[in-house]
Structure formats: structure tokens, C-alpha cells
Write a protein that binds this DNA or RNA. Structure first.
Lengths: 216, 216
DNA sequence: TAGATTGTTAATCGATTAACAATC
DNA sequence: TAGATTGTTAATCGATTAACAATC
């Protein structure tokens, strides 16, 4: 029962965890008490087999003949994702996108706390952004070290992205979420997520003009 | 030569096309003339086999013993993605994220033209956002019909997202890019991309606390 | 020509689906 | 108890990697 094996979880499974969490959260809100793999999988547009196979990477959460207790499974998935931790974040680049992310309410709700915002532009330095004053980029490295920042979000132009990433890495950041439209390079111990917004539009473009393609 | 087969291209291949385009664009800028599958694959962190296999879905672009002409391949990939077309877009939801996307410069550069921005908040309606005046949401459907809008971006709160999507679909939109943190439902002829920002952070969370995992 | 590198077929690996005994 | 549904093993499907003949 709930043995938490978790050895070698494929990335493709990890990426589905937030989706499970989202749908279970919806059921919790609707005060649904139990759900079968079949029902939940139908809601999500996946197969019941896949759902049970996925959960199987982490332990046994259900009950034969009954299904899963919604509330219980919701919290288990949250725990597996690591949402009982709090993580500290910074944003480098206080342009439109940086400001939008700084004001995005769903991050704090999940325990991702914004601790600072940085920019190179002296006109922006000193301005307030919600709870944060925009700081000069030369304060970046000591800030990461002092405050023990976990996650760095990069929203600077692509020319500056690699330098910013390098500073973050030198200061000991643990993960980087990059919005600049280049693939930055980081050492293997730093976890990197690239968010290339224009790439998504290009997939849409391909599909809009496409003659033959597979479903997602 | 350049036969453009393109029958049943797997989604996983389509998603790699923008990355090829990005790296080839970089080589074009650096005035590199030729590149082998081996060299390009190394730059991108994939295998040469995969690169050649991917290109093979679309035709023959290289030359034995020589490799690929950078400029030519760059334009071929652009053509495959569909970047010679122009697409018209609208944004619904003029909050922080909607404004940031409206001001994002890389979209227009690739032929994705923002034609209008909508919001339900009367305080925002009438304000200018770059070249666009924010319109009332009740103008949404006729606007899509009249201007023949291809792509709708949703940046409204999650409670409103499905309604907005329904209106877009009724007006005949072809693709939806959803930033609200719910999975909206659309009929199969409408192409849907969900961008759940918090989901990415949860993957980071899992990885930060994870004991064992696979590489991406 | 000889060397390099493609396009493509075959082999391997991994992920999804099917099936079913175990059991609540 | 009988019916439902899990956890898990086996079968299938699809994607990646390896290998190599074709050829520039």
C-alpha cells in the first residue's frame, strides 16, 4: 500500500501528473467521492489502462471493485509532484512577459513563491511589481546565493539569455525556466525547461495547412 | 527530389520542426553554407539518425558525401511548417498575459498577425494595445467571421474559457491556443493547443524533489 | 577516384493497450 | 455472495537507433 517505488519514472509519465492533478482537483471541487480509472480516463481523453499503468509507477492507490477515493488520490498526486514543498523563484527580465508572469496568480497558489525580479534597464529598476521591487541585474548572483533561490525564470531577449543562465548556474540555482527563443545550455545537474512560445504557433501553422497528420 | 510525401507525420516529429528551424536560422545568420546531419544533430542534442529519419517524412533535401545546404534546408523547413502563409490571430482576455502576448514581437515576424484584442471589462474596452484597440467581447463572433480569423488565443480566467472557446468555434475559428488552466473542449476540426503554465512548474517541482527519473 | 554522407531498411527500445487473475 | 474494478503481466504498437548500400 502506497509503497512509493518511483524508480525511473519516464518523462512522459511525469508530464501527465499535472493533468491528473487538475482533473482530480475538479472532482474534489464537485464533491465527488470516488472515481474509477475508466471514468477518470474518459474525462481526460486517455485510456484507463494508461492511467492505471501511470499510477503503478508510484504505488497502489485504489481498491478493487471500488476505484479511487478522489480526495485521497488528489493529495497523493500532489505529494508525488512535490507540492507540499515551497519553492522560491526569481524572474530576470521585467518586460511584458516577465511582468505578466510576476502577476500570474496560479504560481503562488501551488507553492511557487516569487522572491525577486531583475532587469538591466535603469528605468525599470526600483519600480514595484506586486510585492517585488525590480532590482538591478548586478544584484542577481548574491541574491540567489543569499535567498537560496530554487527556480530562475528567464524573460530577457535571446541575446542575453545565455549570460543570464550562466550567472544563475554559477550562483547555484537548481532549475531554469527559459522563455527566450534560444536553447540555452546548462550543466546536467540544473534542470531546464524551455518554453518557446513561437514554436507552439508553428505547430499550429503546420496543422492548419497540413494535409495529413497524426492526432496528438 | 523534394517530393513532399508528408503522409501521416507523427506529432512528435512535427513538434521538432520549429527546433530544426531555429538551429538552421542560427547557422544562416552565421553564414554557414553546409551542414551534415551529424553536425546539426550534435548541436541540437539529438542523433543524426533521428534527424535524417525526420526529414525523410517530407522528402530528400541532402546530397550524399556533402550534407545539406543550410540556406536551402532552412527555407524548406519553413515551407513545411507553413511559414510562407500569413495567419490572422485574436486574443481574448486583455489582462497581464494577454497584453504580454499582444506585445510579443516574434509572432508577427513569423507571419502570425494580431488582428484584434477583446475583453469583457468595460474599463479596458477602448484602450489601445500597440496597433489594436481593445474591443468588447460581444463583438467577438462577428469579428471572427468578418475578418476570417484563423487562430484564437484565450487568456481569460478558467471559468470563462470554455464559453469563449465555444464562441470562437461557432464563428468558425480554425485553431485555439488556450492559456486558461483548464482543458477546454472543441470539435475535432478545430486544432487545440493547451498551454498550462503551472503544469510546467509542476514538472520542475517533481524533478527538484525527485529521487529517480529519466532524462527528457 | 576515394572519402564522406545521404536515404532507407532492419533491429532495438520504450510506451501504450489488452487481458485477466486477484480481491474488495 | 456476485459484480466491479484494481494492479500487473503479456501483446501490440510506434519511435528511436543502428547499419549499410547508393552515390555525390
Amino acid at each position: 500500500m502506497r509503497d512509493t517505488k518511483e524508480t525511473r519514472v519516464p518523462m512522459v509519465v511525469i508530464k501527465r501528473l499535472p493533468k491528473y492533478y487538475r482533473y482530480l482537483g475538479e472532482l474534489v471541487e464537485r464533491k465527488v467521492e470516488r472515481v474509477s480509472s475508466q471514468t477518470l480516463a474518459n474525462m481526460m481523453g486517455i485510456s484507463a489502462s494508461q492511467l492505471r499503468q501511470d499510477l503503478n509507477h508510484f504505488g497502489e492507490f485504489g481498491q478493487q471493485g471500488y476505484g479511487y477515493r478522489v480526495e485521497g488520490l488528489y493529495h497523493e498526486i500532489g505529494r508525488i509532484i512535490g507540492l507540499e514543498h515551497e519553492y522560491s523563484m526569481i524572474i530576470v527580465g521585467a518586460g511584458n512577459l516577465g511582468q505578466a508572469l510576476a502577476n500570474y496568480p496560479n504560481f503562488a497558489k501551488r507553492g511557487f513563491l516569487l522572491k525577486g525580479v531583475f532587469d538591466i534597464n535603469p528605468k525599470l529598476v526600483g519600480l514595484r511589481l506586486r510585492d517585488n521591487e525590480i532590482m538591478d541585474i548586478d544584484k542577481l548572483k548574491p541574491f540567489i546565493v543569499d535567498k537560496n533561490i530554487d527556480i530562475g525564470i528567464i524573460t530577457v531577449p535571446k541575446e542575453a539569455a545565455q549570460d543570464v543562465a550562466d550567472s544563475m548556474v554559477e550562483a547555484g540555482i537548481r532549475a531554469i525556466w527559459n522563455y527566450a527563443p534560444v536553447d540555452i545550455k546548462v550543466p546536467p545537474q540544473v534542470f531546464l525547461e524551455n518554453e518557446h512560445l513561437a514554436d507552439r504557433l508553428m505547430v499550429i501553422s503546420f496543422r492548419l495547412k497540413a494535409l495529413g497528420y497524426d492526432e496528438d
